[in-house]
Every structure is written in structure tokens, then in C-alpha cells.
């Protein structure tokens, strides 16, 4: 270097490499701030559990668990109050069943078709369509069910009422199709190509390879996608609130108005229910059932995939 003083010398004097206190402090402080934000997710879960259980415990001081689980009438908003959860449960199950009956075959067929049969051009068209379907807000699906699907169903099915489980279930199924398709396709995509080639090598047709080789190999993922779809259907709110009605009826007739667990929570929330009233507490009792139901399904799905995944190297 030509200069007398090298620019390299303009650094703080070298020490014994022990840490600079200010820098150390800053690093540690940042670490703890980040840790604190990361723990917020745990706080959220705790918050959900505590706020649900708190009000639910108050609820069960006034209503016996036996009545809750054995009574078949749900009339907490009427003068004669009955607190049997079953009408809400059967309604939720009925709509979810209809939704899955639409979503699982269709979603699975789409997944198999896209991964085993379709050309890349078809995939490039279908995938974005599915993404858009998945991104449509649920309130829009509710509108769709009430104003378009129900009138069409009324044309064909005698006794079909304006609010009914069938219409809500079908539209909910359409909403869930993308989820089933994408999760199943992931599972099918994870099946090694060598397995397919082995079957093709034996002279199998595409259909045989898809149904007898690929689907069985991807079965754990497909089952998991079905369970997650069920969880989604049980927790779905707006479609049923708009299209399935708000009449807690203990029935499996898909043509008449019913009320799911989620729709009940919406119904109470729309009214001016005072805090700490029994009506207010019912939505937490229903909410906690909803939470644990979906929680169990989600845990089961994740466990199932891990437990029964075929290991390929």
C-alpha cells in the first residue's frame, strides 16, 4: 500500500476476543424477544382452552352433563329451555357426511386423474382453478347454496325446503374438493416412480397401475386427507349458517331446516345475548365440543400418516 496508514488499521483495538458487553447484551435481548413471540402460539392455545373451559364449567353448574348428552331437544333460546346437544351433533354430522360424499370421491378422482393421466397442459389449467375454488370466501359459498343450488334442488326433490342440509352439504363438498385433491395428490406424488414402472413392466394398464398400485401405496395419505376434510366440514360455519337453517331438529332428513353446532354459535352471536348469561355460556359449551372434535381429527390424521406411511428409500 502506498499510504502511510493502511485503511485496515482503522478498527477498534483488538482485545482478548472476549465478547463486547454491549453487543452481547443486544444479542441476548433479541434472542429473548424472539423466544417470547414464539411462545405466543402456546399462549394462544392456552387461551383457547381456558376461555372455552371456563365458561363451559359455569354452564355445567346449571345444566347437568347427563341432560346435555341424553336429551334430544336443544331449545336454550326458548322459554322452556332444553339442553340436549344431539340435534346439533346430528345436524353437523349430516351436513359433513353429505359434504364428504361429494368431496372425497371427486377430490380423489381429480388427484388420481391429475397425477396419473392428465397432460401437463390440463394440469396447468386445473390446478389454478382448484386454487381459486379454495380461495373463495365461505360466505360466497353460502350465497351460492342458498340462492342457486337450493332452487335447483327444489325443482327435483319434493318436500325440499328453502333451508336444508342437502344444499349446504353439496356446496360445502365443492368447497372442500380442492383440499382433498391437493392433499391426496401430495400423497400420490410421494409414491416412487419405480413402483409404477414395475407394474407397467408387467403389462398393466394405466387404470390398473393407478388403482391397484398407486392408490394402495398412497392410502395412508389419502385417509389422512379424508379425515382432515371431515374436520374442515365439522368446523365450517358460514355455509350452514346461511343455507342450512337455524332450527335445531333431531333428524337425518336432508330436506328440512336444521342447525349445526357452528350455526348455533353464529345464531347466538347475532343476538344481543348478555355476558355471563346461560345462553352466552352455551356457545362455549358447544365451542369446546367443536374444538376437541376437530382437534382429535387433526391429531389422528397426522398420527395416521406417520404411523402408516410406506417407507421408500
Amino acid at each position: 500500500m502506498a499510504e502511510d496508514v493502511s485503511p485496515f488499521s482503522h478498527y477498534p483495538p483488538r482485545n482478548d476476543m472476549s465478547s463486547r458487553a454491549s453487543r452481547r447484551f443486544k444479542e441476548e435481548a433479541i434472542r429473548y424477544v424472539l423466544l417470547a413471540t414464539a411462545t405466543l402460539s402456546i399462549v394462544t392455545t392456552l387461551g383457547i382452552l381456558l376461555s372455552l373451559t371456563g365458561e363451559t364449567l359455569f354452564f355445567f353448574r346449571e345444566v347437568s352433563l347427563v341432560e346435555f348428552l341424553t336429551e334430544t331437544e336443544w331449545t336454550p333460546l326458548f322459554a322452556i329451555k332444553k339442553f340436549g346437544i344431539w340435534p346439533l351433533v346430528t345436524a353437523t354430522a349430516l351436513v359433513a357426511f353429505i359434504a364428504l360424499a361429494v368431496a372425497i370421491p371427486t377430490g380423489l378422482l381429480i388427484a388420481i386423474y391429475l397425477s396419473e393421466f392428465a397432460s401437463t397442459r390440463v394440469r396447468d389449467v386445473v390446478k389454478p382453478v382448484l386454487e381459486v375454488l379454495a380461495g373463495v370466501p365461505t360466505v360466497v359459498y353460502g350465497y351460492f347454496a342458498l340462492t342457486l343450488v337450493t332452487p335447483i334442488l327444489q325443482e327435483f326433490i319434493p318436500g325440499m325446503r328453502i333451508f336444508n342440509a342437502l344444499s349446504a352439504g353439496i356446496v360445502m363438498g365443492i368447497m372442500i374438493i380442492p383440499m382433498v385433491a391437493s392433499l391426496s395428490e401430495d400423497a400420490i406424488g410421494a409414491v416412487p416412480q419405480a413402483l409404477r414402472e414395475g407394474a407397467y413392466g408387467l403389462g398393466a394398464t394405466r387404470f390398473e397401475v393407478a388403482l391397484q398400485v398407486v392408490v394402495p401405496a398412497a392410502l395412508s395419505g389419502i385417509v389422512a386427507s379424508a379425515v382432515l376434510a371431515l374436520s374442515r366440514a365439522v368446523g365450517e360455519t358460514m355455509i350452514v349458517s346461511i343455507a342450512a337453517g337455524q332450527n335445531p331438529t333431531f333428524t337425518l332428513d336432508p330436506r328440512v331446516p336444521i342447525e349445526t353446532m357452528t350455526a348455533y354459535i353464529v345464531q347466538v352471536s347475532l343476538g344481543d345475548t348478555p355476558f355471563a348469561s346461560l345462553e352466552y355460556r352455551t356457545i362455549f359449551a358447544v365451542g369446546i365440543m367443536l374444538f376437541f372434535l376437530t382437534f382429535a381429527m387433526n391429531i389422528f390424521a397426522h398420527w395416521f400418516v406417520r404411523r402408516f406411511r410406506e417407507e421408500y428409500d
Binding site: 414464539a38 411462545t39 402460539s41 402456546i42 394462544t44 392455545t45 387461551g47 383457547i48 376461555s51 372455552l52 371456563g54 365458561e55 382432515l228 374436520s231 365439522v234 368446523g235 365450517e236 360455519t237 357452528t262 354459535i265 353464529v266 352471536s269 356457545i283 362455549f284 365451542g287 367443536l290 374444538f291 376437530t294 382437534f295 387433526n298 391429531i299 397426522h302
Partner: peptide, 23 residues
């Protein structure tokens, strides 16, 4: 924390509403 976040992603949105209402 990771398992917890994965589970939170699967909680129905209306349950978040109950949390927000109470808290």
C-alpha cells in the same frame, strides 16, 4: 411449539371467535 402451531392451523375459525370474544 411446532406441533402447537400445526394444530392451531387446524382449529375452526369460529373457535378463534370464541377466544376473541372472551379474551
Amino acid at each position: 411449539i411446532q406441533v402447537n402451531i400445526a394444530n392451531l392451523a387446524g382449529v375452526p375459525s369460529i373457535v378463534y371467535g370464541l377466544l376473541g370474544l372472551q379474551v
